[in-house]
């Protein structure tokens, strides 16, 4: 329960107006800090649902695939520039962003991750590597503003940041592929 409380507390802190304004004032912080933190808050809070609705998860998310699919859909949806713009323009979309990342991405991610086998886990990593590298390529090469709310320099920064994230996940995949844990563990 402590874990769920920490998740809820993190969600509340992230929802405070000054925190929202600060984190959304910089494009890359909006996408690569606020959004992942909402997912982390949801994942921590996921423990609450696991304890109180064990049968629901067992029935609907037995192998983890439905949950991770929902997570991927939500995560990919929020990486579209237009959706970020809408979240800044329409309060209702902003509310949807907070709730969807917290409840529809974070919570199912927590429940699904342990249920997935290594191949599926690696597939998720590969998917996000491709997503982040492509986003990096896109944001670095597009000369128009993709978001009305952010300047071109913010977009280029997000491009480099996404590419760096893609590279980091790729390093992780290479590390797990080319090291043999059985030699050490």
């Amino acid at each position: 329960m402590k874990q769920s409380l920490i998740g809820l507390l993190l969600f509340i802190v992230l929802s405070l107006p000054p925190v929202v304004t600060l984190l959304e004032s910089i494009m890359i912080i909006h996408m690569h800090m606020q959004m992942p933190l909402l997912v982390i808050a949801g994942a921590l809070f996921g423990r609450y649902f696991q304890i109180h609705f064990p049968h629901f998860w067992e029935k609907w998310n037995g192998n983890g695939i439905p949950g991770i699919t929902l997570f991927v859909i939500i995560a990919v949806y929020w990486s579209i520039p237009r959706t970020m713009d809408d979240a800044l323009t329409y309060p209702s979309v902003e509310v949807f962003k907070f709730m969807s990342l917290f409840l529809l991405a974070g919570v199912p991610l927590y429940d699904s991750w342990k249920r997935l086998n290594v191949t599926l886990k690696n597939s998720v990593f590969i998917l996000f590597t491709i997503l982040f590298l492509s986003m990096g390529w896109l944001y670095l090469n597009v000369t128009q503003q993709l978001c009305n709310n952010y300047l071109l320099i913010d977009q280029i920064t997000l491009g480099w940041g996404s590419a760096a994230m893609g590279v980091c996940i790729a390093i992780y995949l290479l590390y797990t592929t080319f090291t043999d844990p059985s030699q050490y563990e």
């Binding site: 890359i28 912080i29 690569h32 280029i156 920064t157 480099w160 940041g161 760096a164 994230m165």
Partner: peptide, 12 residues
């Protein structure tokens, strides 16, 4: 990851 996130804004 943290280094990338920490430095990307000012360095760009």
């Amino acid at each position: 990851l943290l280094i990338a996130m920490g430095y990307v804004i000012p360095i760009v």
